[in-house]
Design a binder for these strands. Sequence first.
DNA 1: TAGAACTCGGACAGAAAATATCCGAGATCA
DNA 2: TGATCTCGGATATTTTCTGTCCGAGTTCTA
Lengths: 159, 159
Amino acid sequence: MKLSNGVEWALHSCVTLSQSREPVPAARLAELHGTPPAYLAKQLQALSRAGIVRSTAGQVGGYSLTRPAAEISALEVVRAIDGTEPAYRCTEIRQRGPLALPAERCERPCAIARAMAAAEEAWARALGEVTVADLAERIDADSGGTAMAAVGRWLTTTR
Amino acid sequence: MKLSNGVEWALHSCVTLSQSREPVPAARLAELHGTPPAYLAKQLQALSRAGIVRSTAGQVGGYSLTRPAAEISALEVVRAIDGTEPAYRCTEIRQRGPLALPAERCERPCAIARAMAAAEEAWARALGEVTVADLAERIDADSGGTAMAAVGRWLTTTR
DNA sequence: TAGAACTCGGACAGAAAATATCCGAGATCA
DNA sequence: TGATCTCGGATATTTTCTGTCCGAGTTCTA
Ligand code: SF4
Ligand code: SF4
């Protein structure tokens, strides 16, 4: 089980965007995070498709959040980058081999698939209860209340 | 986030092995599940390395569980196949870029990594509470109490 | 006791996915 | 009107996963 690496950058980008009301270009976010600029742009495009960020073209364009950070859950961001399909995909191997069950008795997923789905649901629930605003607040608290202000300052000053 | 496909085969194999006290060769399990024999063998080797199954060489050899099925959790099987490293791996990008934090302030993982770890812990807990014996019992109940007996019969008769 | 047959085990290619990158379409401002 | 800056999807490269193969070791048989 491996989670795409771009998820981390997307979460950081959302936290950063919550500190600026004006659009921020992808290149600026890449410089701040020290990531490949073109690849980060790809992740932001995925966020745009999911309706989490809005893109503005032109000279003063860039990306900005479409909703208040308190209304964006971490689960939404992860799903936007990594996809919505579940990690455990049933191949229905119980319908193959010498003891294959008839398709009529395979209407509901079997016990193994149910247990896996329940575990993923617990994971999704834990992630859905955390918002981007929560993350920004906690990161700020960890740094003694200076980190988020510094980010906002850097975004506006270094044009 | 994608879970290795062999996890499904490994879980099925463990459930099947719980129905037979004598060792079962990998080729037999592959025939029963309709999977590539050589690749299933690879997964069983991983289970062997993790101490979940024991391998017996020779003419009547094969794989058998090392413990009662009630003492093997689904989490152990998943970890044996998919690895133990967490799905979300922190790259510590807060230590890069123009606003890099000094390493001394990065002793504990940041809020984003903590939230991700908590979600994965919820997933692991849900999976750790299910044993292979539970899975076998539920599959048997779904089929009206005939499936596990049929598997045990097939394993012994078709030699 | 020697032989044969069957088993597992790790080393070897092929395919799929993720990573990283590029240049064109479109919009904004001077 | 023109130039400049932005996003967007189409394009290579690398890594991971999937699938396969043959040799080492063990057990049973004659
Ligand atoms: S539904 Fe259950 S029995 Fe069927 S393939 Fe999936 S895990 Fe196996
Ligand atoms: S998620 Fe947190 S710990 Fe990981 S790189 Fe970002 S700031 Fe650092």
